[in-house]
Nucleic acid binder design. Sequence first.
DNA 1: AAATAGCTCCGACTTGAGGCGGAGCTAAAA
DNA 2: TTTTAGCTCCGCCTCAAGTCGGAGCTATTT
Lengths: 212, 212
Amino acid sequence: MNENIKVMIVDDHDMVRKGLTAYLSTESEIEIVGEASSGNEAVRVFETLKPEVILMDLIMEDGDGIDATKQILSKDPSKKIIILTSFYDDEQVFPALESGAMSYLLKTASSEEIIRAIQKAHYGKTVIDGKVAQKLVAGLHKHPEPFDRLTVREKEVLKLIAEGKNNSEIATTLFIGIKTVKTHVSSILSKLEVADRTQAAIYAYQNHLFNE
Amino acid sequence: MNENIKVMIVDDHDMVRKGLTAYLSTESEIEIVGEASSGNEAVRVFETLKPEVILMDLIMEDGDGIDATKQILSKDPSKKIIILTSFYDDEQVFPALESGAMSYLLKTASSEEIIRAIQKAHYGKTVIDGKVAQKLVAGLHKHPEPFDRLTVREKEVLKLIAEGKNNSEIATTLFIGIKTVKTHVSSILSKLEVADRTQAAIYAYQNHLFNE
DNA sequence: AAATAGCTCCGACTTGAGGCGGAGCTAAAA
DNA sequence: TTTTAGCTCCGCCTCAAGTCGGAGCTATTT
């Protein structure tokens, strides 16, 4: 494989694209065929630019990187997409890799690391940043979420508890009786292994169950 | 003022520093005298590099930008520090400007915007990104934090409520009587204008009162 | 000296929260 | 067909939660 590797950069920070270009221009094997400043723009232009490898940021104003990755791969599964982002939350890493991305790097990476990741991606090999990998295995070791043991109805009730509603308000919201609400609440408390509705609400917030 | 403006770049992303350097090298008036990859490093080296303007990222592994800004300005208040970050949360903007930073830009800014901000900073003029400014005025319009009306003791009690403790647990934790706890709780509820301890705990989480 | 604010505590009272046990209904699984 | 799981509802019970009004103490302010 002596040809150039065609690379496309997707990032909403102009200076990051500039910096990456400076990084990669030192490597004769790599050719930057284009840039995009948002996920949606990337989806629009990648078929024209025909890159083999795509460096993709995650958080962007107009169409995030995960969405863009899914859409691009659904149109052309042969594309190798490398996530290149600033963060390594569980919330970010899992969906990103599920979306079909080949590698996951952090923006603190050196130019050598990025170049190597591009080369490996070209051959179909995955590169995961060390810190991200740690989070990944930590995430797998995590307790089999007691939240998932809740029924649909119980999750609805928990959501309303986390909004600060009392039992009668929940009852009128869900068009059911107060007694039924109490049944659900009791079930929720025992499944989450908490003592009262306040601790249930706290549980919901600490586990970011209902956004924020 | 025909001399060069001496600029220092503080960012933990190598590629961002590269990109910024590429940005600013087009402008003959600006001279980059050094870089730092963390807040603590910036504090250590700025006296040697003698920059006039410092471009400062906020979130960094080893010493965040707000801390670094405070420390640098306490040693030399004449430095002009421009915050250059990806986000514009209320939680970020206020402490950043309180720390004494002169300007607040987003990383989506163009090279012209950054160059202009550096020039203005040099003359002591502030530049705030439009989106950030919006958040700012929205923040000022916000209710004059009812949380601040709580007494020290009440804040302690609220913290324990947000940890899921009941009244008797709070009593033993603070070495006071249950009746006293109830008094504090009632006072907290009326000051925060919420109905019960669950809503108080939710209030604490939504306003990020006790980290996370 | 007097007023104010904060922390402490008390008794009495009302009510919502939650546990326990039981039950009917429906839909899916064994 | 029988069993199981989920949603619904009931009564009874206990107790924590929260309100109201009152009070003593200290430190600061006026």
